[in-house]
Amino acid sequence: MPDGTQTLPVSTQDLRGWYEQLLVIRGTEKAAFDLFMSGLVKGTTHLAAGHEGVAVGASAALRPDDYVWATYRGHHHAMARGLSPEACLAELMSKGTGACEGKGGSMHLTYAPGNMMGSYAIVGSHMPMAVGSAWSAVLRETDQVSVAFFGDGATNIGAFHEAVNLAVVWKLPVIFICENNLYMEYTPISSVTAVEHPAADRAAAYSLPRIVIDGNDVVTVRDEVGKAVARARAGEGPSIIECLTYRHYGHSRTDPAKYRPEGELEQWLMRDPVTVLRDQLVEAGVGEDELTVIEGRAQQMVTHAVEAAKAAPLSDPREAFTDVWADGGSQWRT
């Protein structure tokens, strides 16, 4: 680990809150999968089930006015920053109550009220943007921090390297958080990458420390991101944090993930972030009855979101011609 900064305190109340957040996101991802299978969600989805620990842990270390940038696998990040499960599922179902009025869909979830600046589906493209929001915070003399979440596959694209280099050169308050789930789409990341740890092993090239952590432990993620946030707010520049995690579903809806070696998923399911946090709660003395109440509440929230999203009308067809320009319209000629 890069420094000896003391870890942040953890209260049982924190753990309870994070557990419920994990459950709501997991439940929403499962609902998205089921809605897809029943034909109510079009296009594609890239589910983050298994990655929730990174989103919940990082969010716990951030302020509401910090900026978050995500990839096309970004439901968990939008929800961790406050997007409701209903607005998430409604967007996937092309409904008028969806987060982006049906113009974004699963791959472009955005929640501006939580400074969640969008989900980007061209690999790596949002990383320079996160550098830009960090630059903006410096220019406006706020102490806001920016976070770019990205997959292991993004570390082999040019925008990653341009972004990290510029962030270091300009000493910007940005944290690059890699969700290393071992697979670049359908291909093991190790078979297409020159280093063992695709993000962390590149850090030295940019004069940054090598940080690899357990991404399935919310508390670990919160602590490590918290240290990076403190460095960023203190004007000490960017960090790269590689979180080891695992995708419970395939890359996208059409991928049954047959390329995984036998037993790998089962092994990772034992390290499921939900299970890890539940064990921590039990260890902290929270009883089964209380856990059951939290689990029931989360389930109820998701069930309600599914019903509400199903009941909502499709977005207005006229929405196709709004929001191209800042005046709200789409006129391009006289």
Binding site: C100, K103, A112, G118
Partner: peptide, 9 residues
């Protein structure tokens, strides 16, 4: 970005 975020940014 403006379009696909439904005018949020």
């Amino acid at each position: 970005v403006r379009y696909m975020t439904g005018g949020q940014v």
